[in-house]
Amino acid sequence: MDLTSFTQYVLSGLVIGVIYALMAVSITFVHGMMKIVNWSMGEFYMIGCFVQYLLVTRFVGPDLWVLGIPVAFCLVFLFGMGIQRYLLRPMFMGEAERLDEYATIITITLMVLFRNLAIIIGGPYQYSVPDYFPPTDLGPLPISGNRFMALVGTVLILGVFYFVMKKTWAGRALQGMSQNRIGIQTAGINVRRLDEIAFGIGVGLAAAAGALLAPVFLVWAESGSVPTMKGFEIIVIGGLGSIPGSIIAALLLGLIESLGSVYISSVYRDLFGFVFLILILVFRPNGLFGERERLA
């Protein structure tokens, strides 16, 4: 195998890794902020896919495909804030005894509800979003235009997310909440409002990922299941709650899947990630960047 082919496989792995990263960041962000696992994240991704599909095929056409990303993010952001306020907030108000069980039940219920609603509304069919960008080259790697734009879009969204979290006071308040939930309340910040915003941003990112990837994969009621599975794999590999960990783990997973498919067999593509996950759990149970929780 020559160097050019190897570079192509590495690049292809990194491209898919970057695309995985957005979904993983959205899952780990909600976990880091609210200390809950949102099992319905894939369904918010699916909503983003459908928003993009409807916009491109019915409303604005392929030329204005880029509108789908902010529209999906904003709609799902507001929807997520409502869900947090009316369904998840009670667990932080002393009205639920087992927070983790409460969150699990609510978010699994939402997952089942949204999937079935999507089947009722869209039927059991798979839809495809038409290409809106011609094939291009990324160095030595020929890449489909949609996939290239998904890559560029993901990098841009992650960049904006990084800027908001690190450079704005609201972002720092969110970081403060993830670092010390009681401390942020006693410092005078409305943690209920922050919860709404954090959940809204988390599910909004998943929807943006859906809007970006709608033309890369098919759009249907269970579109979100594979990205969610990959997302959970990535956040465990990277370390729960660690955003840099999620990004690096996503790139590693993309590389492992790509190289494993070439050098071993593409039949086992999904298996490579799980083997890697098991190895990480054996040698670093808290993930690559996870820290052991201090109990005292």
């Binding site: 006071w169 720092r172 403060g176």
Partner: peptide, 21 residues
């Protein structure tokens, strides 16, 4: 057990609450 923002600087711990609100 002080409830601080452990990954922020002392200065940020002082400023974040006032500026965020």
């Amino acid at each position: 057990i002080p409830k601080l923002f452990s990954e922020m600087t002392v200065g940020e711990n002082m400023m974040v609450p006032a500026l965020a609100t």
